[in-house]
Simulated assay, not measured.
Amino acid sequence: MTDTPQLRTVTLDTPIQRGEQTIETVQIRKPRAGELRGLALVDLGQLKVDALGVLLPRITLPPLSPAEVANMDPADLLACGAEIGSFLLQKARRTDALAQ
Rank of each mutant, 00 (worst) to 15 (best):
I16N: 03
V49E: 12
D96N: 13
A67K: 15
L88I: 09
A99S: 15
I28F: 00
R58D: 07
C80Q: 06
L47V: 03
I23E: 04
V26I: 11
T11E: 14
R58K: 12
T95C: 08
D96S: 14
L47N: 05
E83M: 07
I16K: 03
R37W: 02
D43W: 00
P66V: 07
T95Q: 15
R32G: 11
T14D: 03
Q21G: 02
Q27L: 01
D50V: 12
S65W: 02
A40L: 08
V26E: 01
P66Y: 14
Q90N: 11
D43C: 02
M72G: 03
L56G: 10
D3L: 04
N71W: 06
A92L: 13
A75N: 09
D96Y: 14
Q90P: 05
P5Q: 13
A92N: 13
L44N: 04
A70K: 09
F87E: 10
L78I: 09
Q90S: 14
Q6M: 15
L12I: 02
R94V: 10
M1R: 08
P31L: 05
A79I: 03
A51M: 05
L41S: 04
I84S: 05
Q17R: 12
K91G: 12
A79Y: 06
L41V: 09
D73Q: 02
T9R: 06
D76S: 10
K91C: 06
L55H: 04
A70S: 13
L88T: 07
V26S: 04
R18A: 09
T11C: 01
G38Q: 04
A79S: 13
V42T: 12
Q27M: 06
S65R: 13
A79L: 01
R32N: 06
K48S: 11
T22C: 02
I84L: 07
D43Q: 10
L56Y: 02
R94N: 07
A40T: 03
S65C: 11
Q21Y: 06
F87T: 11
V42W: 00
T60S: 15
K48P: 03
G38Y: 01
E83N: 03
R32P: 01
D73G: 03
I59Q: 06
V54Q: 08
E83R: 09
L7E: 10
I84V: 15
C80W: 08
L41H: 00
I23W: 09
M1L: 14
N71R: 11
A75F: 00
P74L: 08
R93Q: 14
A79T: 06
V26Q: 02
D73W: 01
K91L: 14
A97Y: 05
E20P: 05
Q90H: 14
L47M: 15
A99T: 10
T22S: 12
R58Y: 07
L36G: 07
D76Q: 04
A97F: 06
R37F: 08
